[in-house]
Lab assay of single mutants.
Amino acid sequence: QTIHNGDQTYHYDNPEEAIKVAQKLAKIYNLTVTVKGNTVQVH
């Protein structure tokens, strides 16, 4: 599972963990989380 947060990319073995982290980032920075296959984008 990969999270793209602007210019930063994070890799997680656990998809659920990746989505949790993405949602935390989204709340902190007031962003949107988009899940596309194995990629979670925060923008």
Rank of each mutant, 00 (worst) to 15 (best):
L25Y: 03
T32E: 06
H43Q: 05
T34W: 04
D13P: 09
K24G: 06
V33S: 01
A26G: 08
H11V: 14
Y10S: 01
P15E: 13
I19H: 11
V21W: 14
Q1F: 08
T32M: 08
A18V: 01
Q41G: 02
T2F: 12
A22M: 03
N30D: 06
N14I: 03
N5A: 10
I28T: 05
N5P: 11
I3E: 09
H4I: 11
Q23R: 08
G37F: 04
G37M: 02
T9M: 11
E16Y: 07
D7W: 15
N30R: 05
V21D: 04
H11A: 05
G37E: 05
Q8E: 08
H4R: 07
Y29H: 11
Y29P: 15
Y12P: 01
T34F: 06
T9R: 05
D7R: 10
P15W: 09
I28H: 11
H11E: 09
I19A: 09
T32C: 11
E16R: 07
V40K: 00
Y12G: 01
K24Y: 15
N14R: 04
P15I: 08
V40S: 01
T2E: 12
E17Y: 07
G6W: 14
E16P: 02
N5R: 12
K27T: 14
Y10E: 02
G37C: 10
A18T: 01
Y29W: 11
Q1E: 11
I3T: 11
A22T: 01
N14M: 03
V21K: 05
H4F: 13
E16G: 05
K20P: 01
V42Q: 01
D13Y: 04
V40A: 01
T9K: 05
I28F: 13
L25I: 06
V35M: 02
Y29F: 10
H11Y: 14
T34I: 09
V35D: 00
K27F: 14
N30L: 05
T32P: 05
V35H: 02
T9Y: 15
L31I: 09
Y12M: 05
K20L: 10
N14W: 04
Y29D: 10
E17D: 08
E16Q: 07
V35R: 01
Q1H: 11
N30I: 04
K20Y: 09
Y29V: 06
H4K: 09
Y12A: 04
E16C: 13
V40G: 00
N30S: 06
V35G: 00
L25A: 01
N38L: 04
N14T: 15
I19R: 13
T2I: 11
H4W: 13
K27Q: 15
K24L: 15
Q8W: 15
L31Y: 07
I3C: 15
V21Q: 11
K20G: 04
H4Y: 12
K27C: 15
L31K: 03
G37R: 01
H43P: 01
N38F: 03
V40N: 00
I3K: 08
K20M: 08
I19F: 12
H11I: 14
T32L: 10
K36W: 10
